[in-house]
Design a binder for these strands. Structure first.
Lengths: 172, 172
DNA sequence: GCCTAAGTAGAGGGATTATTCTACATCGTC
DNA sequence: GACGATGTAGAATAATCCCTCTACTTAGGC
């Protein structure tokens, strides 16, 4: 991914996150990406491509935010992940997961759905390995999905619930 | 709500559930509702109103599906709720919660967001009262949200996880 | 100083959109 | 059998959409 393409993708990600995937017109996306319409279409030759590029960019930023400098195998590793997710929600995703939003906006788009699946699978894999709970992938996903989904409604209380529920995962 | 209006709403709900909120044109919605364009606009004078009516209809059907003939206070009540949610997902919501989809498609619409909040609050209230766990609302919501959100990705494994996690809610 | 590559600004095409409007059909009731 | 309410079918409108295109500018390498 070239310098400029990722700069464009960053702007697109911000716009889609703020206004959803249906509302912004291509002209809005041009303004958000900070380049001309011609350049925008040169790097991303259709509106769909703009969506994909934004999500790709999101994916990398999210992984970096959750996993950078995360110590493996500590007993509080899972709590740290939960806190970092809460941070992320507060700063970046007050409306919930951007991947789910994208799929919700276009349920027929298989490429989009695959992006969502790979995104979630990579997170689940990384978390279960780093927290030393290899058999508990589905439990972990359920709690983390529940957290991102209920945080917009419940705020900090959701974080506390997630931590409480996680203590029971390791216990059987 | 008149006879015909709820017949229209039922058709709209089906269409939005199948194709999302952005894709279907008003002509598609006309076909799905089974009436003429003029009649459709008579009962629901804008496309937004069609969305609201569809969600209202969904809300009532969902509550009926989850709570009809549900025995209060049994120890397996929560498990029954989980199983009914799984049933619902399988039959009706293979793409996830329709309310979240609607909000995702139009994040700026406050009326839509309020509909989502009231929908979730009513469920949380009903479940916590019927399962005799009045202090555990946020735990319950988190698990149920996690279930609906991870079911499209994990299927039956998500149901098992939800049940397992629920056993730990009552225990402290 | 010229040339190529890569950018900007912005007009416009062609398709689709939500909504309104006209003209006609049906049906129960008096 | 006439009438008013309520329906249908579908054309018309005005706006908006995604995308392409032309014409002009900038910047760096030889």
């Amino acid at each position: 991914m070239s310098e400029q393409k990722s700069k464009i993708a960053a702007g697109l990600e911000r716009e889609f996150a703020a206004r959803g995937f249906a509302e912004p017109s291509v002209e809005d996306l041009r303004d958000a990406s900070g380049v001309s319409l011609r350049t925008l279409y040169k790097y991303l030759p259709s509106r769909d491509e703009m969506v994909y590029a934004a999500l790709e960019h999101r994916h990398h930023r999210y992984l970096a935010h959750i996993f950078d400098d995360l110590e493996q195998g500590q007993s509080e590793t899972l709590n740290t992940v939960i806190e970092r997710i809460a941070e992320w929600m507060k700063k970046e995703a007050s409306h919930g997961c951007l991947f789910h939003s994208a799929v919700a906006a276009a349920p027929a788009d298989d490429r989009l759905r695959n992006l969502l699946i790979r995104h979630k699978a990579e997170i689940a894999d990384k978390v279960s390995r780093i927290a030393n709970l290899p058999g508990k992938q589905t439990d972990i996903i359920l709690v983390l999905e529940g957290l991102t989904q209920s945080w917009p409604l419940q705020g900090q209380a959701a974080v506390d619930s997630a931590k409480r529920l996680c203590t029971s995962i390791g216990q059987n």
